[in-house]
């Protein structure tokens, strides 16, 4: 069992690791000038079934709700059990993070911050204006967004997939996200891997997505079901 866990850890660590060197274009060809942009352009809401696998052999499933406002770069999110019990609710804006509900073991500030960072990486475009364009060792075109604490690579993949990787300054891979294009857009199936001994892998499958409607809560008189 330990051997299997060790192998799993190594696979997690290496699966997205290799090949972060890029060959920069001297003068980007016209067709490669646009970087992948899967991000919602307006306020959007996504509901995903989330399968979680983490060290040492934790497997569970949750329902996640994410509300994104790209204009204000604000994020609201909620996690609930299959039984509908909300176990985590938080929102983040450029001004800060607000946790409105966090039941153990999801009640650490670290968990909330990391989760918001993961959501931002998936649903909001990078803010960096320092962008390099080139090709990876495997020939795929990549856009590299430099920041103070590292960089973020975005590359296209087979079948319209988009791969997003975040590296720390020293070159260590922090996160690897794959967005699989589907009929409902790039958020139909999402894989997120956080490498390392205490890494985790999330497999997110879209249940529902909703566009902007301005109304965040259904008043009691409009609810369905028996009264």
């Amino acid at each position: 069992m330990k051997r299997v866990l060790l192998m799993l850890t190594v696979v997690l660590a290496l699966s997205c690791q290799a090949g972060h060197e890029i060959k920069l274009f001297d003068r980007p060809p016209a067709e490669s000038s646009a970087c992948p942009c899967p991000y919602p352009q307006t306020k959007s809401r996504f509901i995903h079934a989330i399968e979680v696998r983490s060290f040492p052999d934790v497997k569970t499933a949750l329902i996640g709700v994410t509300l994104i406002d790209p204009a204000s770069r604000s994020i609201s999110c909620a996690l609930m059990s299959a039984e509908g019990m909300a176990v985590f609710e938080a929102s983040a804006t450029p001004a800060g993070l607000e946790i409105s509900r966090a039941l153990p073991p999801l009640d650490s500030q670290n968990f909330a911050r990391n989760m918001m960072d993961d959501i931002e990486m998936i649903f909001l475009p990078p803010q960096s204006t320092d962008i390099q364009k080139g090709t990876l060792a495997d020939g795929r075109r990549v856009c590299r967004y430099q920041s103070n604490d590292g960089w973020l690579d975005m590359a296209g993949g087979e079948g319209g997939k988009i791969e997003i990787k975040r590296y720390e300054k020293g070159g260590g891979l922090k996160r690897c996200v794959t967005l699989a294009a589907g009929a409902s857009g790039h958020y139909e199936a999402i894989e997120l891997a956080a490498p390392g001994i205490f890494g985790y892998r999330l497999t997110m499958t879209l249940i529902d997505s909703q566009g902007p409607d301005g109304e965040l809560f259904v008043p009691d008189e409009n609810r369905g079901g028996d009264k």
């Binding site: 909620a78 965040l216 809560f217």
Partner: peptide, 8 residues
Amino acid sequence: MKILSRPL
């Protein structure tokens, strides 16, 4: 939930 525009 407040975050939902219609019930799940």
